[in-house]
Structures are given as structure tokens and as C-alpha cells.
Amino acid sequence: MSVKKFQVFDIVIYIVLFIICCFIVLPFLYILSISFTSPEVYTAYSLDFIPKEFSLSAYKYLMNSSTFLIALKNSFVITLIGTFLALFVTFSFAYGLCKKDLPGRKIFNILVIITLLFNAGIIPNYMLIKDLNLMNNKWSVILVMISSAWDIIVVRSFLENLPVEMEEAAMVDGYNDIQIFFKIVLPLSLPCLASFLLIFGVQYWNVYFNSMLYLADPGEWTLQVLVKSMIVDSSSDAAGFAGDERFIPQETIRYASVILSVFPILLVYPFLQKYFVSGLMVGAVKG
């Protein structure tokens, strides 16, 4: 009797979790299906989870649009340079702060925590970028988002808990702190590096407000800004499509642009997601 009761409990939980997963997956299947639907058979008021007639034309259109390709390139450049710099600056700064008897450590920590507590806001940041002459320059978005107090605090607490034996052995061998950082500390922090690779990578790939604010020139648009403008503007002027666009219902293109903007994340996600479960990420979530 009680065994059967347990099974009902299990079944209910499994079904509820399945439904929750459907809520997340089905929207994508729907978008994916429309993005692959041939424009000839596409009708505005249909509800299909499998394309009626498979076609790549929406993707071909996007891949032939210079506006889309430039935005794609801009997003890739910002994400690659930004992620690399963010990892370097955050980890080296956090490593510098690790030593308890470092003179000035307290001041550095306070400098970090103040930025956690009080944000100057949108306009002062905007003015700074203007004064630095970085408007319509990719470095504005890269530099503004390089690190944050939470990132520094989480990485620091991870580095503080690394075993010190190898560092000490290296010190005896005559390595200085910079060599130790690159040759010993970074390889030891691989799980932490992987997590922040994903965090920073996603942060740069997904940035919308900063790139809209600082990169207003269409030639500097990032993918998120372009996708937003393609979805909202009923005309596809934003993507600069010319010529025979009237043969393609714009909708399939819009859906395809969303799929393409999500694709890089889906690509790296499976490789990096195993690190979320480790305790390390708990600190990161608090932010």
C-alpha cells in the first residue's frame, strides 16, 4: 500500500517537471519550426511545431545581409576580447587581494565594496564614455563591463581556498608571484575559470542596454540590438534587406534571427553547465 503511494508521488513530480521543461523547450521548437518554414507555404495564422515545407531561405537571407553579418561580427569581437580581458583582470585582481597580510588590502577591499553598494548610475557612466571619446567604439562596451564587485569577491573566495602547498613549493624554486599566478594558480582554478568563461561570455554576448547606449551607429550595432530592432520595427529596414524581399515573409526572417542569436549560447552551454552544480556557483548566484 505504502509502496504504491510513493509511486504516485514520483509520477506526479516527474510529470510536473516534464511540463515545466515543455514550457521552456516548446517556444524554441515553435520558433525553430517557423524559421525553417518555406516562405511559399507560410501563412500568418497557422500553428505548426513542424515546418509544413522545410526551407533554409530565411537563414540564407540573413547570411547574405551585410547588416546582419556586421552585427554578428561585432558581437563576436566584443564577446571574444571582452571575455578574455574580463577573465584576466578579475582573476589577477582577485589573486592580488588573496594574501591576508598584503599592505593596503583593506583599502582595496573597501574600494571594491563601495562599488557594490553604490552605483553612480546611467548618466555619469554615459558622460565618462563620452569624455573618453569611446562613443561608437567597441571598447566602450568591453571596458564598462569588465568586472564587478560580485565577480571579484566570488573569485577571491575561490582562490583563497586553493591549497597553498604548490604555491609555496614554487616560491622555494624561485618563482615570483606573477609566474606562480600564470603557471600554478590559473591551472588549479580551471573549474572557476570555466564558470566565469561562461558568465562573462554570456554577459558580453547578451548585452543590450550598454551596446544600444554606446554603439548607436548602425555599423557598430551588436546582434542583440539588431534583433530587437528587427522584431519591433514592422519594416525590415533595420536589416537593410534590398531587392526581392517581398517574396519572403518577414516573419520567418525575424524568427530565424532569434534562433541565430541564441545559437552560440546553446553551443557552449552543454560543455560548461556541469560546473553550475558545484558549490562555487552559489556565491555567484547571490549577485
Binding site: 585582481f93 571594491v112 553612480a120 571596458l143
Partner: peptide, 24 residues
Amino acid sequence: YRYVLLLPGLIWLLIFKYIPYSGL
């Protein structure tokens, strides 16, 4: 050498987090 490693982060913090405070 720790200070050398601290330097990039510190410069970033001062320029991109502290100069905006003057904008207030």
C-alpha cells in the same frame, strides 16, 4: 609582484567605477 597583478583591476576600478561618482 602582487601589486603588479592588482594594477589592471585597480586602474579599471578607479576609471570606470570611481570617476563616474564625480558625475553625481
